[in-house]
Design a binder for these strands. Structure first.
Length: 224
DNA sequence: GCGACAG
DNA sequence: ATCTTGTCGC
């Protein structure tokens, strides 16, 4: 897919925080126009020496969830891991992997938070704004937000709130298994995000596309 | 000051 | 994320 640069990735954590506040203004939680026919998922892994980061993008079709194409990218790590600033570490390689994808998927699943973030601009939102396409944050654990009780029945969920905002949901994707933290990243609503993630869940905690991307990037990791 | 803290 | 063995349950 064609992608244009929005900004440099070289900056200090303090500058990164300021940039997130500015870019968060361009996040649009508008409903997805039509039912998604193709969905992509991206996952990252680090080289053994932790100096390089790799990403795999997997595109599948719905509702079959069959792989249409995959792509990969490897870059040098240039930013430390700081809670709240994950995109400055992982977004560059994720974007590069998406650049190698032919066509444009209807929605992209990201391993991290969407707006369920201190400045409402998690990894999924950053990638969504950069690519100007719908993204869903699909995290395995919580960054911020409160919720009532942990759902344990597949398909059930609790709203994730921060102050007076509903920033996402705690979604059970498989019976009796630790829930996922779903939040819209860009150009999609929370309700649609939940439904789409569930439409990708067959027999595992992670939605199939995300699981596939994780398996593939883990293999790629060994060849680094 | 103390704990929490995506990947 | 990464390291790291066995073990409980469907």
């Amino acid at each position: 897919m064609n992608i244009r640069d929005l900004h440099s990735w070289s900056m200090t954590p303090a500058q990164a925080i300021q940039l997130q506040k500015e870019l968060a203004l361009s996040v649009r939680l508008i409903p997805l126009g039509r039912l998604p026919q193709t969905i992509a998922a991206i996952d990252c892994a680090f080289s053994r020496d932790k100096k390089r980061i790799a990403a795999i993008a997997v595109q599948v079709c719905l509702p079959e969830l069959k792989i249409i194409q995959t792509s990969e990218a490897v870059l040098d790590v240039t930013f430390p891991y700081v809670p709240g600033l994950l995109s400055f570490r992982e977004a560059p390689v994720c974007i590069e992997a998406m650049r190698m994808i032919r066509g444009i998927p209807d929605v992209v699943l990201i391993d991290g938070q969407g707006i369920a973030h201190p400045r409402r601009f998690g990894l999924a939102s950053h990638i969504g704004v950069w690519l100007d396409c719908p993204t869903i944050g699909c995290a395995k654990s919580r960054l911020i937000g409160q919720f009532e009780r942990i759902p344990v029945k597949k398909g059930k969920y609790e709203l994730l709130k921060d102050k007076n905002d509903i920033i996402g949901s705690v979604l059970c994707t498989r019976n009796q298994v630790k829930p996922l933290f779903i939040s819209p990243g860009h150009k999609i609503t929370l309700d649609q995000s939940i439904k789409i993630v569930l439409s990708c869940c067959t027999r595992y905690r992670l939605p199939d596309p995300a699981r596939l991307a994780h398996q593939l990037v883990t293999q790629l990791r060994e060849k680094l």
